[in-house]
């Protein structure tokens, strides 16, 4: 055994030294290489996950915005239709009212004119009746004077 160990140059000093060397490599690489690299990978994973989540959120937001806009346009359309129909209705009602009023006014004017004409005719008749009577009296007087 002793021969074997010396043939391969086994020396506990060197064994410990090499073990310590490896331990130093292990610790140094862990702090300088593995941890930072794994941290960066973890960070990137988080960033990517957040990006994907944000994109998803934006997509759903866009979809809801689309449907919201559609609802808005739809209500605006129906409202506008209602307003136009209402205006049309009001206009036609107004038209009918105006026509009726004009008709009644025209009728009143005609009636007035007729009444006036009738009155005038009656007056003229009365006037002429008086004149005829006076003329008749005058004629009678003349006749009587001539007789006398």
């Amino acid at each position: 055994m002793q021969q074997l160990l010396s043939a391969f140059g086994i020396d506990w000093h060197l064994l410990i030294a090499q073990a310590v060397n490896f331990a130093i490599v292990l610790v140094a690489l862990t702090y300088f290489l593995y941890k930072p690299v794994l941290n960066v990978m973890q960070q990137r994973k988080e960033v990517v996950a957040k990006g994907v989540e944000d994109a998803k959120l934006a997509e759903t937001k866009l979809a809801t915005a689309d449907s919201e806009a559609k609802v808005l346009v739809d209500t605006a359309e129906t409202e506008a239709e209602g307003i136009v129909a209402n205006a049309r209705e009001v206009a036609s009602a107004e038209k009918a009212r105006l026509l009726k009023e004009a008709e009644t006014r025209a009728a009143a004017v005609t009636r007035d004119a007729e009444a006036q004409a009738k009155e005038m005719a009656a007056q003229a008749l009365r006037n002429s009746e008086q004149e005829v009577a006076r003329l008749a009296i005058l004629a009678a007087e003349k006749v009587m004077r001539a007789k006398a």
Binding site: G9, D11, H13, L14, A17, Q18, N21, I24, V25, A28, L29, F32, L33, P36, V37, V40
Partner: peptide
């Protein structure tokens, strides 16, 4: 304490590895 050529080489390899790790770890 015996100093063998393989021990010196181990230190050289360590220096290369740790040096690389140090500068690479800083440039991440």
């Amino acid at each position: 304490f015996p100093i063998t050529n393989s021990l010196i080489m181990a230190w050289v390899v360590m220096a290369i590895l740790i040096g690389f790790a140090y500068f690479f770890g800083k440039s991440l």
